[in-house]
Nucleic acid binder design. Structure first.
Ligand SMILES: [Mn+2]
Ligand SMILES: [Mn+2]
Ligand SMILES: [Zn+2]
Ligand SMILES: [Zn+2]
Lengths: 137, 137
DNA sequence: ATCCTACAATGGACGAAGTCCAAGTCAAGT
DNA sequence: ACTTGACTTGGACTTCGTCCATTGTAGGAT
C-alpha cells in the first residue's frame, strides 16, 4: 500500500477499491490531470467507477492537503498530487502543457503591508505563461 | 465618448448600442465582474441585450488588450478593464472579494533559465489568497 | 465467521458557465 | 436613401461540476 493510502487510513479513511484506483492514477511527478482524465484512467482499472466518486475523492484529497487544485484557465481544474513540495506552474498558452517550476524568491514577502488591505494573506499562486518547445515553430 | 470607445472606433469597431453599454459597465477601477454580472448591469440600460453579445464583446476586448481575463477559481472568469497598469490580485478565499495589488519585485526575473524548460515565457500571473476584513470574525 | 451500520458509491437529474449558429438587424460608407 | 457586411439575437448545445435518493460495503463488534 502506498504511503498516501497508509496516511489516509490512519485519518479514518475507509479504504475502498475506488479510492485506491484514484490514488494510483495520481501517482508520479508532473501529474496534472483533470477530473475527467482521472476518471478515464481509473475506469481502465475499475470500469464501473462513477464520475461522482472521482469528484468526491478528489475533493477529499484536496481538503486533506494531499492534492492541490490548479486552475489553468483552460477549462477544467487540474489535480496535482505534488502537494508536499511547494512549487508553481509554467504553462503553454497554446497546448495547455504544464510543468512544475521552482522560482527563487518569496512572492509573499514581496507584498507590502500597505498592499494587503486588511486581508490575512496565507497563500500565493504564481503562474507563468508562454509557449512550450513543442508549440514553437 | 470615452477614450476606450474612441480607441476602438479607430481600430474599425462598429459602434453599436450594445458595445457602448458593455464598455460603460466596465468603467472604473477595481472592477472585476463576471460575464453574467456585466450582462445584468448592461441589461439595466439596454434590456434586450443578449448574453451572447456580452460574451462576444468581452472576448473582443480581451483580444484587443483592453480588458484582462482573471480566473479566480471561484467558478466564472472575471473581466478587468484595468489593462493598462500591470498589477496582480489579492482574493478572499471565503467571499471571493478581489483587490488589485502591486507587489514589489519582478517574478519573471525570479524564474531561472534552468527552470524554463525551453518555453518562451512571456507572462506571469500572481494571485494572493487570504481572508478579507469583512470575512474575519 | 457472521452481522451490523455508518459511511461510501452509483447514476441520473440538475445547474452554471460558456459556445455556436441560422436568421434577422443595423452602422456607416457611398 | 441604399446597400452590405458586420453585428445581434435567442435558443440549442457542450462541458464541468454538484446533488441526491438509492444501493452497496468496509471494517468494527459479537
Ligand atoms: Mn504541479
Ligand atoms: Mn485587477
Ligand atoms: Zn505547447
Ligand atoms: Zn471575504
Amino acid at each position: 500500500m502506498s504511503d498516501l493510502l497508509e496516511r489516509l487510513r490512519t485519518r479514518g479513511w475507509r479504504l475502498t477499491a475506488q479510492r485506491r484506483v484514484v490514488a494510483e492514477v495520481l501517482e508520479g511527478d508532473h501529474v496534472h490531470l483533470t477530473a475527467d482524465e482521472v476518471h478515464a484512467r481509473a475506469a481502465q482499472r475499475l470500469p464501473e467507477i462513477s464520475r461522482a466518486t472521482v469528484y468526491n475523492t478528489l475533493g477529499e484529497l484536496v481538503n486533506l492537503g494531499e492534492v492541490i487544485e490548479v486552475s489553468t484557465d483552460h477549462r477544467a481544474k487540474r489535480y496535482d498530487p505534488n502537494a508536499h513540495r511547494p512549487h508553481h506552474h509554467l504553462l503553454c498558452a497554446r497546448c495547455g502543457a504544464i510543468r512544475d517550476v521552482h522560482p527563487v524568491g518569496n512572492p509573499l514577502a514581496d507584498l507590502p503591508e500597505s498592499e494587503r488591505f486588511g486581508f490575512s494573506v496565507s497563500e500565493v499562486e504564481l503562474t507563468y505563461r508562454g509557449i512550450c518547445p513543442d508549440c514553437t515553430v
